[in-house]
């Protein structure tokens, strides 16, 4: 896992994931305004669904063909697409703007939804391929 092809695959996947996260965030601000970080909430949900779906798929199909995509898709794309540091900054930013209720809502909404998305991704694949 620590060989250079793994680093190259993770770097490429993370570059794509991060770029897509930035575009989603720009689109969410253009469509829904900057008052609430909808973009980050959305990428973290979709990324949690995807990573769990891929992990379940890899567990169902135990061949090297699926595992070969793991560094690019999981550590690379899903890792770069989702973000915890921006989630933290956005929470603090809402506090700094004098919106503690919105900051609390963001945290209390995010965590159960991340987990629910991962659980749904896992279940979706296991029902079809398990």
């Amino acid at each position: 896992m620590s060989s250079w092809p793994a680093y190259a695959a993770v770097g490429l996947g993370s570059a794509l994931g991060s770029s897509l996260r930035y575009l989603v965030s720009l689109a969410s601000i253009a469509m829904l305004g900057p008052a609430f970080p909808w973009g980050t909430l959305l990428v973290n949900l979709v990324g949690s669904w995807l990573i769990a779906a891929f992990a379940a798929y890899a567990a169902c199909r135990r061949d090297g063909h699926v595992a070969r995509w793991q560094p690019f898709l999981v550590a690379g794309f899903c890792g770069g697409f989702t973000t915890f540091s921006l989630f933290g900054l956005e929470t603090l930013h809402l506090l700094g703007l004098g919106r503690p209720g919105l900051a609390l809502l963001y945290v209390l909404l995010s965590v159960p939804l991340w987990l629910a998305a991962a659980w749904l991704g896992d279940r979706f694949v296991r029902r079809r391929f398990g």
Binding site: G79, T83, F84, S85
Partner: peptide, 18 residues
């Protein structure tokens, strides 16, 4: 947005907690 956004992750956090 790039380095720290890509460095940190919620997808692994969700999957590993699950």
């Amino acid at each position: 947005i790039g380095v720290l956004g890509g460095y940190t992750t919620v997808s692994s956090l969700s999957l590993q907690s699950l």
